[in-house]
Design a protein around this nucleic acid. Sequence first.
DNA 1: CATATCCAAATGTTCTTACATAGACCGTTT
DNA 2: AAACGGTCTATGTAAGAACATTTGGATATG
Lengths: 248, 248
Amino acid sequence: MQEEKPIEFKVDHHSGVPLHLQVEQLLRTIIERPEYREGKLLPKEVELAKILGISRNTVRQATNKLEHEKLLVRKKGVGTRVVRQTLSTRLSNWASFSEEMHSKGVEFVNYRIDVEWVKADREVAAALQVEEGREVLKMERLRGLDKGPFVNFISYFHPRIGLTGKEDFSRHLYEILERDYATIPSVSKERINAIPATKSLAELLNVKTGSPLLFRKRLVCDPGDRPIEYNLGYYRADSFTYEIDIKR
Amino acid sequence: MQEEKPIEFKVDHHSGVPLHLQVEQLLRTIIERPEYREGKLLPKEVELAKILGISRNTVRQATNKLEHEKLLVRKKGVGTRVVRQTLSTRLSNWASFSEEMHSKGVEFVNYRIDVEWVKADREVAAALQVEEGREVLKMERLRGLDKGPFVNFISYFHPRIGLTGKEDFSRHLYEILERDYATIPSVSKERINAIPATKSLAELLNVKTGSPLLFRKRLVCDPGDRPIEYNLGYYRADSFTYEIDIKR
DNA sequence: CATATCCAAATGTTCTTACATAGACCGTTT
DNA sequence: AAACGGTCTATGTAAGAACATTTGGATATG
C-alpha cells in the first residue's frame, strides 16, 4: 500500500543538525514532487520562515545552496521554482555513473547486469594492453531511471585487478575497486561520437532503430597509467548530455 | 614595461554593482596569485570586512559562492585557502577547429563563411551574458576536408571583443582574437550530445536526413571567466570523434 | 480598447549582533 | 613523554531589521 504522505513542514531546533541543513533536506524532498517539477512556485521565503519558525536568512542559506547546484531558479519579484533537470555528466569531478547520478540525487536503476569471462578481442586487448585471447572479465549493464533505461554499458576489466565476477556490482563500481581491490582510477581517456541505434540497442534503450545515440569509449587508468577498465557506453541522446569544463 | 601592480583591496559603494559581486571578483583576482595558490590563508573574514568597509555577511556571500565552485576551502577555526587546482579536468590540447585539424596534419577547407550582425535571442543572450536583443556578431562556417564538409559551426561573439565582421576569418580564429584583439580564450564549457540531422543540416553536410550528428555547444571564456564566443557545432558523426583525456 | 501608471508582492542586498564550534597552541598534570 | 584541559582564533550558525529592485496585476486614463 503506497500512501501519499504529506511532507511535514517543520524543523527540529534541538536536534543539533544545523537548521539550514534541515531546510535544505526538506526542500530537496519537496522539489521531487510532480507539482513543483512542473513549475509550481515554492512557498515564498518569508512564509517558509514563518512556518518553520526560523529566520528568512536561514531559509536563504538553504535555497542559496540549491540554487548554486542549479536545482532552483529564483526570480526577483516572482518567486522560486524548480529547474527542469536534464541529465548530464559533469566532468569537473569525474566519477562513476552511480556516483554521478547519486550526487544529483537521482535514483538509478539497474535493469540488467551480466557478468562473464570472455576472451579479449583485438580491440579490447589493445585497449587493456593484454594479449589477444586472454581471459578478461566482461560486464554488461543496462541502467537508467525508473521511467526506463537510458544507457547500456559494456566494461572489460584488466585481469591484474583481481575481480572474480562474484562481486556485488550493484554497489558503486569505483568504490569496489578502491576499497576491495586497492585500485584507484585516476585518468580517463575518452572518445565520443554519435551513432545510429542498431536494432538490438534500440530495443534495449527503447528507442527507434537508427535514432541517434551518444557513444562513449573510455579507458580508465590508475595513477601509473596502467589500464583498469575499458568501457563502452551507449546513451540515449534525448535524455543525456555530456558536459565538460575545460581549462587551459 | 610590465609592472607588478598591487591589487587594490577596495570596493565601490556607489557603483550599483552589488558589493558581494565586487568582493567575488576581487577574490577571483587575488586567488590567482602564486602565494595563495601555494596555500597561503586568505585574509580572515572579519579583517576583510573591515578593510573593505562592509559587513562580514557580505564577504561570506562571496566566499560561499567560490567555495561552492570548489575554488576555496574553509576550515573552521583555521581559515580559508585556495584549493589546489592541479587535479582539474584538463583536455590534453583544446584548440580551435583549425588548430585541431592542423595539429593532426589534416588540411581543412572552408566551404562557406557567412558573417552578419544579429540580435541576440534568449539562448545567445544568456550564454554571452548580454541583454536579449543586443546586436552581436554571428558567424556561420561550413568546414571540412577536400572530400566534403563535415562540420557546420555557428558562432556568436561578445560585443566586448570589438570584432567588426570585416576580419579575415580564413585565418585561425583564436590567433585573430589573441593577436588583434588581446582576447585570450582560457576556459571552455562544453555540452555534447547527439541529434538527428535536420533536413537543412543534412543537405549542408551531405548526409541523409535523420542520420546522427554530434552536436556540441561550447562557451569559450577569457581568464576572468567572461564570455567570448558561444559556438554551436554540428559534426558528421561518421567522420568525427571527440577525444578527451581527463585527469583527476 | 489600448496604454500608461501605480501598487503590492517577492526576491535581492546589506548591516548588526550574538553565540556555537573546531582547531591550534600551550601549559599543567599524570 | 603522554594525556588532559584551557584559551584564543577563525569560521559556522542564526536572528532580525531595513531598504532596493523587479515583476505582474490592478487601476486609471486617453
